[in-house]
Design a protein around this nucleic acid. Structure first.
Lengths: 207, 207
DNA sequence: GAACTATACGAACGGTCGTGCTATCTTGTC
DNA sequence: GACAAGATAGCACGACCGTTCGTATAGTTC
């Protein structure tokens, strides 16, 4: 018996459609929310039939989970990858903060930070979607904390300050900037966040 | 012509129902969101018929606006009024922060801070509802800024620090605490916010 | 008690939601 | 070029949405 039938799993156009769908979904979700995002509305938005779109997913929950995954990839490419170019230490922490603020200003997601938009909506509804979001947030905070720890170990940040506390405070500045910037897209609030972070870990290293 | 006709405007039981509806709506909205909150669901929740409930409002938008108004009253009674008991100065700033954190811990709204819950959802959809929310936020930030200004004028807070910046940072701590506490109701995050604020304006005055 | 009216209800409306089923078109493999 | 399978569209479904309507109940004023 042949163990693996020479099955053709996907077709290139299907893969392309799936990407188009999820790319739009990730961006739309920051405006409509993950629940508010409707299959029909999303289909209209990308010029596709509702059933044709739906055929790519087993259920709406699957679509939501896939959307989160896509948003995570976008966030990774737009924020984490560029920030990884900075040398470990205080520069890396600043790179994370600045890349985050820059992706807000660039309007990568029309409703601001994807995590923040979706977290506020799902924080109280248990389920797989919420679990994935919590994990996503944990990963972001974890990366930020790791950068802070390294900066402290390198002696570039006050050594007696609790890392967890410092991470909390830096993240607070970034999240506050996100909320305020979505409400009123004034670059001044991004600058406020930078000033706040400078008070916490010192000014960004000159490059 | 008689200027004021002796019209009977409302009945006491109607007013009571309206209050019951809006009280439940304000609390439910922090979980379901203002859009996610459905007339039928709200009616079920308080054991009333959908049409009976709806008769109190001209449209869903009216219900949403009235809900915001009620939430503002609750917030005022639970946070602003108690905080107003503290003497003007740094003590007042700390009272605002602590009363805010305490109302989170008390679970006044099941989904955390009403402003934060609803703002994240409506920040991108223009309309009367959004306008009212923005106004609500402005009022909160204004009160906080006023308290900071007074504290600075009294010489109880560093005088060379920009008030707007300081308000931004304090508010960031409180909002971050809200988001984190809703995700994971661990009082530790409230303490983190307090520590963060202490770094900004100094420790709370002993009482 | 009569007249009036605020309040509440049940039923129904047009619309949209998520979700299946089925047919047609398109693509990749032989 | 045939053939199988993936991709898309059309259609229909039950449930729920906000909203309206007619009507029964009950509080207020005379």
């Amino acid at each position: 018996m042949n163990v693996t039938a020479p099955t053709r799993r996907t077709r290139s156009d299907g893969e392309r459609s799936r990407r188009t769908i999820l790319d739009a979904a990730a961006r739309l979700a920051t405006v409509e929310g993950l629940n508010g995002l409707s299959i029909g509305g999303l289909a209209d938005h990308i010029g596709m039939s509702k059933s044709g779109l739906y055929a790519h997913f087993k259920s709406k929950e699957e679509l939501q989970l896939a959307t989160i995954e896509t948003a995570a990839e976008i966030f990774d490419a737009e924020v984490m990858v560029p920030a990884a170019a900075a040398p470990v230490g205080r520069a890396r922490v600043w790179a994370l903060a600045n890349e985050f603020l820059a992706h807000l200003e660039r309007g990568v997601f029309p409703g601001g930070c994807f995590i923040a938009s979706v977290a506020a909506e799902l924080d109280t509804r248990p389920g797989r979607v919420r679990d994935r979001i919590v994990e996503f947030i944990g990963s972001w905070v974890g990366d930020l904390r790791e950068a802070v720890t390294a900066a402290q170990a390198a002696g570039e940040v006050e050594g007696d300050e609790d890392v967890e506390q410092l991470t909390f405070e830096i993240n607070a500045m970034l999240m506050m900037a996100n909320g305020a910037y979505v409400m009123d897209p004034d670059p001044e609030v991004l600058e406020r966040a930078r000033r706040g972070i400078a008070k916490l870990i010192g000014p960004p290293p000159a490059r």
